[in-house]
Design a protein around this nucleic acid. Structure first.
Lengths: 143, 143
DNA sequence: GCAGTTTGTGGATAGATGTGGATAAAAGTG
DNA sequence: CACTTTTATCCACATCTATCCACAAACTGC
């Protein structure tokens, strides 16, 4: 599915390009929503339906599950891709993810993540140090 | 699977040749990712799928697992081999691995490693001096 | 050794891609 | 209702990329 890291910038008309490789999967429409760690998630329509189904089945009684589902569902918005494969990001999502000008667009399996460049660097540094040794983890996975 | 050490250079169009022997295994496509010690790993599609499958089973809700999967997956990129068996290396991976002009391409079991020549020499020197110690450890392991 | 094949390397060219702007339609405002 | 502001659709174009093709060097089997 989606794979790879790309750098784009939001232009004067607030448009953000999606990598050509990803466009072919999305088609003309996609769903954007609040992600984790202050990034945004972009799903294809099919994937979004699957995810929404799962989220709706989370037990209403559990506060944390309910919160998780809320974040994902309430923030969601359907977006169109223009002829050049660009999308418009709603203001409230732009605020949520601190998007400025330089943006990282990254494929992670069944979703695309959208990060402000600074936030991405921050996250990557933090995670790489916390993660300790990649080699050990790979070992645990039997790779 | 992959065996041997080869030297190539990145040409003016940023293309890096893959040894003919390896091409037959890869076919037309491969997946390149951040490796260890500032080298890059090149996997065949089948091998990558195995690895990705394991990563995909890590729970999305746990921050550290999420981080690990992100770093591994977002660092990855699918690459095409042209008719002459050459690939294009994304800029962010070139930076990560300090690739300049002269490149070492080496087969290591189920993956191919890509090193900048200088980094490779550095690593080899370091490792060879530690070799004595490593040998002792292997002895402890009964090898 | 030699003819034919494979391999590494370089370049040409058409098409795709990223980015910006022009214009038209829609929505908001006094 | 007139006017401004925003949004959507379309077009322009420089740059990048994929795909071919060329060719010398190395290798192959005979």
């Amino acid at each position: 599915m989606f794979i790879g890291e790309y750098t784009y910038s939001i232009d004067a008309k607030k448009r953000l390009a999606i990598p050509a490789k990803f466009r072919k999967i999305f088609g003309k429409k996609a769903v954007i929503t609040r992600g984790l760690d202050n990034c945004l998630f972009l799903y294809s329509i099919q994937e979004w339906k699957k995810l929404a189904e799962k989220l709706s089945k989370l037990p209403l009684s559990q506060a944390d599950a309910r919160g998780f589902a809320r974040i994902m569902l309430i923030g969601a918005m359907d977006v169109d891709l223009d002829n050049a494969g660009r999308i418009l990001i709603p203001d409230y999502l732009k605020k949520y993810s601190f998007l400025k000008k330089k943006i990282i667009v990254a494929g992670v399996f069944n979703r695309v993540e959208i990060w402000d460049e600074n936030k991405w660097q921050e996250y990557k540094n933090k995670t790489e140090t916390e993660m300790g040794n990649i080699a050990e983890r790979l070992g645990e996975l039997g790779v």
